[in-house]
Nucleic acid binder design. Sequence first.
DNA 1: TGACATCGCCTACAAATGTAGGCTATAATC
DNA 2: GATTATAGCCTACATTTGTAGGCGATGTCA
Lengths: 136, 136
Amino acid sequence: MPANKSARETPRLSEAEWEVIKPLWKHGPMAARDIYKDIPDKFGWAYKTVKTMLARLVKKGAVTYDQIGNSYLYRPVYSREEMTRSATGTFIQRVFDGAWSPLLAHFVEHVNREELEVLKRELARLEKKEPKNRGE
Amino acid sequence: MPANKSARETPRLSEAEWEVIKPLWKHGPMAARDIYKDIPDKFGWAYKTVKTMLARLVKKGAVTYDQIGNSYLYRPVYSREEMTRSATGTFIQRVFDGAWSPLLAHFVEHVNREELEVLKRELARLEKKEPKNRGE
DNA sequence: TGACATCGCCTACAAATGTAGGCTATAATC
DNA sequence: GATTATAGCCTACATTTGTAGGCGATGTCA
């Protein structure tokens, strides 16, 4: 069976690393200084801290860069979609042993109306094509 | 105003700690040796490793114990429900900035039929009482 | 009543993570 | 051209996590 095209192995990020890569997904390629500025103040990180995170993200292969003059323009290697997908899988496995039910229960207790609409749409879409012995 | 009973602050667990506390939720109070036996072989941990995790869980206040003779019967301080609830909140915040949509998208791509039924039931239940002064 | 098997307690040690600082080269400014 | 603000590179250091081991006390079995 051919490899699933969407199944690239993504690096695992620490919490702080997630905060540093988010601006890159939001704005595209950025200089370290701009990433720094884009990170919410509530984290209270020094610029140097952000730089350290960027270095680690590069080392992990989650971020790469192009050199422009004497500085770098950083950009993500994986889409946010890819990264969140695998992080979610890992999380679900760790916390729920792979079972979604508790997460769903949590969900229905906390969603707002808008999110609920999204979900209903997704469900409708799913029902329609219904397909598929998914879950083997 | 009385404290909200469901809002206890729970300790944060590492991945390995999650695996060690799970048997306690599943079976109730257990001796370290039994917890050790209940942890899936795939982790390949030594008994001593499990003991270390238990000590850390106790130190974090996630687990406590009653002494029986010269050994301990460990038990969880928080319900699995409580722990998963807060872990989920933290995760959602970290990875999705608090937005559920990407998680839902992930969900509809991966659930199996059974989980889907659970969700539909939950939704029905939600619709019924509908109202919505939820979120205080 | 010894000899083991276990118990819990304390210690160890590398890797990952959080949180920067110092140093040198270069770019921009007067 | 000299000064200064930045850039990237390398280093630092405490804490958390993964992964146990050693040791003395106690329970267990012959």
